[in-house]
Design a protein around this nucleic acid. Structure first.
Lengths: 236, 236
DNA sequence: CGGAAACTTGAAACCTTTCAAGAGTCGTGG
DNA sequence: CCACGACTCTTGAAAGGTTTCAAGTTTCCG
């Protein structure tokens, strides 16, 4: 589906420097554009794909936020990641050609998709894209690893890290980094950071009482970024 | 460096069905062999590479065990993975062309290396290898994710899962799955599973007292695999 | 406006860690 | 071959952070 009219294409997409086209030349981006599908808009709670479903393509968030979730054998939901515009999902499905977790829109969301069938063909045609895909996969491993290391730390550090990370990623994408929505409920935040709902609530409130943040429902305003950052570098 | 004489090559390597050559034809494996370097033997404590070092290649363990470690800002060592023959390391370095953690031999160890400079070239020549690399990266993401999910669980489940996982991986590689060395000290086990040394010791002893395993220093003999497996499926 | 869902907050319970001391293991050298 | 020292492992007791439970309070949405 070739882009037409005012539609956002890879070439004019604001997230080109973050997303798959990152290392490509103009010409290569055009080739990529020819196979990338731009899908319809989803709403809060809609699935981008479901765990167990056959892999149909790599997905890049274009606008809105999503969560990557895994349901364990007891039906418990575990939040693996929060996805922002320009971020890629589905790389982990390439080993079995089956999605191994689900992606759900956290608000109104639009996305692009590189169909699974096209991946080999287009990578053969654009060597730089192959590099780019490996780079994304490699990045994903590193990001997950960092997440893992944070889980060893006390609740306050996990939450501070989450807030600062989200803030920074939003800023990188041109959004306000000082005041934004967490996108997740306390319950979901807990599921992401391996904390009980009550602990999340308590710790967040504690940050607020310390004057480091201001909470209004699910949105945060960062008042003292340094204090949050200092928490992270303090002794284990 | 072309294989000569009795040397183990990719073609006659026992781990060909696990390692990089997994999906390749005989002919493609020969092409791969031409660029894969077989390195000298390392001993316990030797580094395969160090965190921060420039990426020089993807490494496959040929014999022996290794640990993947990360040192945090306080000098604390975190064990990210235990590596067995046929397993690939270094994929996470592809995003920055710098190793982001260190790999250390746990005993006498030999390995192969696909030099970094050759990766693009050989992948362009062998499309199936490109698929294979993505598959490994994808697998790595999945494996890490599973690890992450286990860290939410009680100490006993984490240890049972570690023992069963190692046992299964050893079996897949043709080693005894019922009696083997953990490769790690209690301290290191703790660092891998996010547990204190004392908790590891206690929990392992508890398994032994229950008659599920037999411990002799760092080696385990599994006496009741089912009991360990049942632990994992029990309620959170 | 009203009900449901999400959030806050306290108290008790729980699992894991920390601290500390003693036992066991291993390698080396007398 | 045994003794010694260093290191690793075991084990108990106390401390600690997080969870659970439960009861309010607030927020959201129809």
């Amino acid at each position: 589906m070739r882009a037409t009219g005012l539609e956002v294409t890879c070439k004019n997409c604001g997230f080109g420097s973050i997303c798959l086209p990152r290392g490509l030349t103009q010409k290569e981006i055009e080739q990529l554009e020819d196979v990338v599908q731009r899908r319809k808009v989803l709403h809060k709670g809609d699935f981008l794909f479901r765990s167990g479903e056959a892999f149909h393509g790599l997905i890049a968030i274009k606008s809105g936020m999503a969560k990557l979730i895994f349901q364990d054998e007891h039906g418990q939901e575990h939040i693996l990641a929060v996805l922002l515009p320009g971020e890629l999902v589905g790389l982990d499905a390439l080993s079995h050609y089956t999605y191994r977790c689900s992606a759900v829109a956290l608000d109104t969301l639009s996305y692009c998709e590189l169909p699974g069938k096209e991946i080999s063909r287009i990578c053969a045609k654009i060597p730089a894209l192959f590099q780019e895909m490996l780079r994304h996969a490699s990045d994903a491993i590193g990001t997950q690893r960092e997440q893992m290391l944070f889980i060893k730390r006390p609740a306050s550090q996990r939450l501070a890290a989450f807030i600062l990370d989200l803030s920074q990623r939003l800023e990188t994408r041109g959004f306000a980094g000082d005041e934004f929505s967490l996108g997740l409920s306390r319950q979901e935040l807990g599921s992401h950071l391996h904390l009980a709902l009550a602990t999340v609530s308590r710790t967040l409130k504690q940050f607020e009482r310390a004057g480091w943040i201001e909470l209004r429902s699910r949105s945060v305003k960062i008042l003292n970024r340094q204090a949050l950052a200092d928490l992270l570098t303090s002794q284990d």
